[in-house]
Amino acid sequence: MIRETLSIFKNIFENRKLLVQFSFNDFKSKYAGSALGIVWAFITPLVTVLTYWFVFSHIRARGADEAYPFIVYLVTGLIPWFFFSDSLLSATNVFREYSYLVKKVVFNVQILPTSKILSSLYAHVVFIFIGFGITSLSGVFPTVKALQLLYYLFCLIIFLTAVTWLTASTQPFLPDIMQFINVAMQTIMWTLPVIWIPSENIARFLKINPLYYVIQGYRDSFTNGPWFWENWQYGLYFWGFTIILLLIGSGVFGRLKPHFSDVL
Rank of each mutant, 00 (worst) to 15 (best):
I2D: 06
R3Q: 15
L6S: 14
N15D: 13
L18K: 15
L19I: 05
L19P: 04
Q21W: 10
F22W: 13
F27L: 02
K28P: 01
K30G: 04
S34C: 14
S34I: 13
A35H: 09
L36D: 02
G37H: 08
V39N: 02
W40Y: 10
A41E: 02
I43C: 01
T44S: 14
T44A: 13
P45C: 03
P45W: 01
L46K: 05
V47S: 02
V47L: 03
T48N: 06
Y52C: 03
W53M: 11
W53I: 06
F56H: 05
S57N: 04
H58V: 01
R62C: 02
R62P: 00
V72H: 00
Y73D: 01
V75I: 03
I79S: 01
P80E: 04
S85Q: 14
S87P: 05
S87F: 03
S90D: 14
A91E: 12
A91W: 12
T92Q: 07
N93C: 12
F95V: 06
F95C: 02
R96A: 14
E97V: 11
L101H: 07
L101G: 03
N108H: 11
V109M: 07
V109Q: 14
I111A: 10
I111S: 12
P113H: 12
T114Y: 05
S115E: 07
K116M: 10
I117D: 05
Y122K: 03
A123Q: 05
H124D: 04
V125W: 00
V126S: 00
F127P: 00
L137A: 08
S138L: 02
V140D: 04
V144G: 07
L147E: 10
Q148K: 10
Q148A: 12
L149P: 04
L149C: 06
L150K: 04
Y151L: 07
Y151R: 09
Y152F: 11
C155T: 12
L156Y: 11
I157P: 09
I158K: 07
I158E: 10
L160T: 03
T161L: 12
T164Q: 08
W165H: 13
L166Y: 05
T167R: 10
A168C: 13
T170P: 11
T170F: 15
Q171D: 14
Q171I: 15
I177D: 12
M178C: 08
M178G: 11
Q179S: 11
Q179E: 12
F180K: 11
V183Y: 08
A184R: 08
Q186R: 10
I188K: 07
W190Q: 06
T191D: 05
L192H: 06
I195G: 00
I195E: 01
W196Y: 05
S199F: 01
I202A: 01
I202E: 02
L206Q: 09
K207G: 04
P210N: 15
Y212I: 09
V214E: 06
Y218V: 02
D220Q: 08
S221C: 14
T223Y: 01
W229D: 09
E230V: 12
N231E: 15
Q233H: 09
L236C: 15
Y237E: 15
G240D: 15
T242Q: 15
L247T: 09
I248K: 13
G249K: 07
G249Q: 06
G251Y: 06
V252N: 13
L256C: 13
K257D: 03
H259I: 11
D262S: 06
V263L: 10
